[in-house]
């Protein structure tokens, strides 16, 4: 998902980015119990691979283990158990993980976990829980990044309309209009400054607009991108409200 955030400042944009990557809870495998592991890999290596397999996360129904009344993180409100049973010759994939909740399943069924030779067996039970990206990367719902919108300035007197900038632009978004360069789509600009470097009379300057940002959210598939953004904003809002209340209390 891509969108433009305007009328903001860098701190605001960065807080949204940080909240989206760190504060939106998703499901990930947190504990693995191996019954049989005759594969070439150690238990912990497999556990690590399993943990990094993205799982679809339902929006409602589960709570963070720290907020659950059960306290041990094993009840049906805060955990889902998944089983895997595979015998070689085969490649165990994320699709072999059988979940007890049909809403919490691997996003893709083709993530390879381990290749098993003839006669090698693998059997395990895994527990998936909700968690936050601030704790471990396996709970990051995706990659959130932003960039500035460029301010493209041409010194009309210095520009001789040679077109060197048109050729230099790797995105191909500069064209000559009445012998003066113009950017057709500022969102496509990657701020590489190739145009200003290629310009013989140095007539082009590229600045960045610190109030407008092009955001890009790439989800792992655990949550839809708009939900990641929504959760991020809601968490930030709650944090600000709580902070305000605490300051009031502090003042007495």
């Amino acid at each position: 998902m891509e969108f433009i955030l305007s009328g903001a400042n860098p701190a605001f944009a960065n807080s949204i980015r940080r909240a989206a990557m760190r504060e939106a809870p998703v499901m990930a495998i947190d504990e693995v119990e191996f019954k049989t592991n005759e594969s070439a890999m150690y238990d912990e290596v497999l556990a690590h691979r399993l943990a990094l397999t993205p799982l679809r996360t339902p929006l409602k129904g589960y709570v963070l283990p720290s907020e659950c009344s059960c306290r041990d993180g094993r009840c049906s409100k805060c955990s889902v158990s998944l089983t895997l049973k595979c015998e070689g010759p085969a490649t165990a994939t994320s699709g072999d993980l059988k979940s007890t909740d049909e809403e919490v399943t691997p996003v893709s069924s083709s993530v390879p976990i381990i290749k098993l030779e003839k006669g090698q067996r693998l059997e395990l039970t895994a527990i998936a829980r909700l968690g936050l990206g601030r704790e471990h990367a396996k709970w990051q719902p995706g990659i959130v990044a932003y960039k500035y919108i460029p301010i493209f300035k041409v010194d009309g007197k210095a520009c001789d309309g040679c077109g060197a900038c048109v050729k230099a632009c790797p995105q191909g978004i500069i064209s000559l209009v009445k012998e003066k360069p113009k950017i057709s789509d500022p969102v496509q600009c990657i701020l590489c400054k190739a145009c200003s470097e290629a310009c013989p009379p140095k007539a082009i300057t590229i600045g960045s607009d610190a109030t407008k940002f092009v955001f890009r959210i790439e989800s792992t598939g655990a949550l839809p991108p708009e939900q990641i953004l929504f959760k991020a904003m809601a968490t930030l809002e709650d944090k600000c409200k709580e902070f305000g209340k605490l300051v009031k209390k502090l003042k007495g």
């Binding site: 860098p10 701190a11 605001f12 960065n14 807080s15 940080r18 601030r134 930030l236 600000c240 902070f243």
Partner: peptide, 10 residues
């Protein structure tokens, strides 16, 4: 962390 503090500072 920075998420809240930087936002408030600005």
């Amino acid at each position: 962390d920075h998420t809240l503090c930087n936002l408030l500072r600005k």
